[in-house]
Structure formats: structure tokens, C-alpha cells
Design a protein around this nucleic acid. Sequence first.
DNA 1: GACCAGGTAGCCC
DNA 2: GGGCTACATGGT
Length: 229
Amino acid sequence: MKKQKLVLDKIDFELSHIFECGQCFRWHKQEDNSYTGVFENNVLNIKEKDNSIIFEGICNGEISQVVESYFDMTTDYGVIKNKLSHIDNYLEKSIQFGYGIRILRQDLWETIISFIISANNNIPRIQKIIERISKEYGAPITWQNNTYYTFPTIQQLGKANMQDLRNLGLGFRDKYVYETTQKFLRGDITLKELRSIKDAKEIKKKLEGLPRNRLKSCRLHFIVWYASF
DNA sequence: GACCAGGTAGCCC
DNA sequence: GGGCTACATGGT
């Protein structure tokens, strides 16, 4: 893990559209309008300057690879937007509204747990709970005199019992997170298995076996997306 | 201090 | 299968 920097041309990339559309919980806006976040074993700060996007932080691997993967850089969003905007007026307006969005390639495990936590909950609190879980069970990464925490792996989160989770403020969701983690720990269901399934209905069926995890269609789209790589 | 939140499981009918 | 309700907390 090392400090790295990357500068890319600003194409189909708008920070606020990406980070404030509700698809992620761990990116925070800074005073200078940049965003800092933790994903997998990376901490990045991202800012816009002179029609460029500057990525800076601690990366597990080459920053160009990490960014390319997480931000889905190999997909041409211009082509997609062009296609969608010709379907109907509603889509055209939607694209005008969020023209700079990219669908992040977030960690599948983190996403499953985050979605369980989101049940009957509000976004600020969801964010706080995820931060607390990460601080308690994730691994620390220090950058620019701040300590950030990765989202815990299955094994790391497996160390928490229901009371531990209750103490972190999960409320009634503690047992659903606990049971889901135990299922993954035991291997009743695996991430590899989810990734190997290409049919959305099959993935849905698998996930419905998990507690507190029946999927609304919006969630399913994300899970299918995250499971696809 | 009441009301609500990125929902869902467990009832009842 | 559809409709209702409880669920733990914290944010507003």
C-alpha cells in the first residue's frame, strides 16, 4: 500500500452526481468540494481542477488499475447516455439531471450488509452505522494524519456477536447482519457463487435465502451489477 | 417529544 | 396472495 496520484481528463465524470446519488455510503464531501472515501483497501481523495479529475491517496495496487475498476472507466457512458436519452422524454430529462454519474463497482460483501442496514433507516444513520462497524472490525489505513477504516471482511465481521452489533446501534437489524455473516462464514452461500451466477433471477433466489434481504428491484440491479465482476 | 426513515418478517384474512 | 403491524434507534 502506497501513496499515489492520478490525473485523468474529466469525461462523463461529475463528483456530486457519483457520490450523492445514493449508491454509496462512505464518501464524504470536504471543505474544498473534493470527496474522500474508503473502498476495499484504498483511501482516496478526489477533486476536480481545470477540467481534470485528480485522484490522490493510499492504494492497494496501482492507482490507475484501482480507479479504472472502481469507477468503471472502461465503460463508455457517453454511448449509454446517448442511447437512453433517445428512448423517451423522462430518460432524457434524467440524464440531463445526472449527466456525470458513474455506477461504482462496489464491493459485493459490503453492499449486501449495507443494504440490510438500510432497512427502515435513514441515510445519515446508515452512514454512521457503517462507519462504526468499519472502525470496530475493519483495518486501519492512515493517510494525511487521519485514520480510515476498511469495511470488515466476512471473517472480521464474524467476530461480532449480536450484542456487539446492538451496541454499535444497528437496532433490530443486528440479528439479520449476524445471521447473514454466519451464513457466509459457514459457506452456506459464498461471494464466488454469487459472482458465478449470470441470471438475475437466480441471484435473487440465492439472496432471498438470507435473512432481511429480500430484494427490491433497485437493490437487485446493484447486487447483480456488483456480482458481475 | 412526536414522527419518520433506502424495509421486511410474521401474522391474519 | 394481499393487508396490517412491530421492529430498535437516532435524526429532525
